[in-house]
Each structure stands twice: as structure tokens, then as C-alpha cells.
């Protein structure tokens, strides 16, 4: 009656994952101290996404989860991106944004 399709391993993997996350946190803080212009945002987001993936795969056991649940969770990000993408499409293409916002 085991729920778990995956066998139980030791706690080593969790410790490794934690160490990885700490290293990535240090990297993202360190990179932020250097001014790279627009690249800063991009790098910070890439590192954050890497951390998020690590948490999802090993802490949330995405690696052993059913395909259905993977699709379900992925859907959330797809629709959040649609939300952002189409809203951004409007704001970004409004002509002379500077003039539009009178209070700027």
C-alpha cells in the first residue's frame, strides 16, 4: 500500500540541495553589487529561476511527481506569463508613454 512510486533515499540529497541554494543566494547577492546595467535584472531573475527549479524538483519532489501534477503546476506559470505578457504588450506599445502619465 505504499503511496510512493519512488524509493526512500537518505537525507544526503536534501543537504546537497540546501547547499546549492545557499551558494546561489551568495552568487545573486554578489552579482548585484556589480553594476551591469540591464543585465543585473536578467541575471538575478535567471538565478532566482534556477533556485526555484531546485526547490521544485527536489524539495517538492517534482522528480517523482505524476505527469498530471507537473502539467498542473506548469500551467500556473504559463498563465501568469500570459497575464504579464499581454498587459506588458499594451503598456509597452502605448505611444509616447512619457506624455501619457501626466503625473510623472
Amino acid at each position: 500500500m505504499a503511496h510512493d512510486a519512488h524509493e526512500i533515499k537518505g537525507i544526503g540529497i536534501y543537504l546537497k540541495v540546501f547547499a546549492t541554494l545557499i551558494v546561489l543566494t551568495i552568487v545573486t547577492v554578489a552579482v548585484a553589487q556589480v553594476n551591469l546595467g540591464r543585465l543585473n535584472t536578467l541575471i538575478a531573475m535567471l538565478i532566482a529561476t534556477a533556485k526555484a527549479l531546485v526547490v521544485m524538483i527536489w524539495f517538492m519532489h517534482m522528480n517523482h511527481e505524476s505527469t498530471l501534477n507537473r502539467i498542473v503546476f506548469g500551467t500556473a506559470f504559463i498563465f501568469a506569463l500570459i497575464f504579464y505578457g499581454l498587459t506588458f504588450m499594451d503598456v509597452d506599445t502605448r505611444i509616447n508613454l512619457q506624455n501619457l502619465f501626466i503625473n510623472k
Partner: peptide
Amino acid sequence: SFLVWGHHMFVSGQSEFAGKIF
């Protein structure tokens, strides 16, 4: 249905480009 909401906003001050896509 998630991709079309902008058609409520054709005259709201949304950009012409967004209006076209929507």
C-alpha cells in the same frame, strides 16, 4: 478565453497595437 480580455478596452486608452492583437 485568457488571451482576449483586451477587447473590453478598445477605447480605454489601451494602445492601438494591443487592440489589434486582442
